[in-house]
């Protein structure tokens, strides 16, 4: 269960798993003062934090099908903010575009009440190394 692996940071913000979408976990966070940026809006950094978590969870789900265990090391993330996040539940789900032996590329979408209108997109590059 991935929920047991959610970081202290994710737990402190109230990030949790909502459901699976084509085998990829959909994460969510409810609006609170803890994740508010300018008054009435979700902070871009908190939005990015949720998306990074969803990206990692999607990659873990994909890698779970492999025989060997790997360690994940984020290389970089590029976030495009398209709409302001308002005072409601925010969802995020990643999709693994490519997971090779050394590196993985994961795209993540974040949305609120309308799945077809994402509020942000993220693209993450993650280094895979054999677990010690």
């Amino acid at each position: 269960m991935i929920s047991a692996g959610l970081s202290p940071y994710a737990q402190a913000l109230g990030i949790d798993i909502d459901h699976d979408e084509n085998g990829q976990p959909v994460l969510f966070v409810d609006f609170s003062d803890r994740i508010q940026g300018r008054p009435g809006y979700l902070h871009g950094g908190a939005m990015s934090g949720l998306m990074e978590m969803a990206g990692i969870a999607a990659l873990q789900a994909e890698l779970a099908q492999r025989a060997e265990t790997v360690r994940l090391k984020p290389v970089n993330v590029q976030v495009e903010f398209m709409r302001g996040g308002t005072e409601q539940r925010t969802f995020a789900c990643g999709s693994v575009t490519r997971a090779g032996r050394r590196v993985a590329l994961v795209n993540v979408e974040a949305w609120q009440d309308d799945r077809s209108k994402p509020i942000a997109l993220a693209q993450m590059k993650i280094l895979l190394s054999p677990a010690e």
Partner: peptide, 24 residues
């Protein structure tokens, strides 16, 4: 702070708080 960690065992800060600080 312990509750900003990305991994409980190591205490390494999650990247989220760093992105938020850099945004601000």
């Amino acid at each position: 702070r312990a509750d900003l960690a990305g991994v409980a065992e190591t205490g390494v800060l999650a990247s989220g708080p760093i992105i938020s600080m850099m945004d601000n």
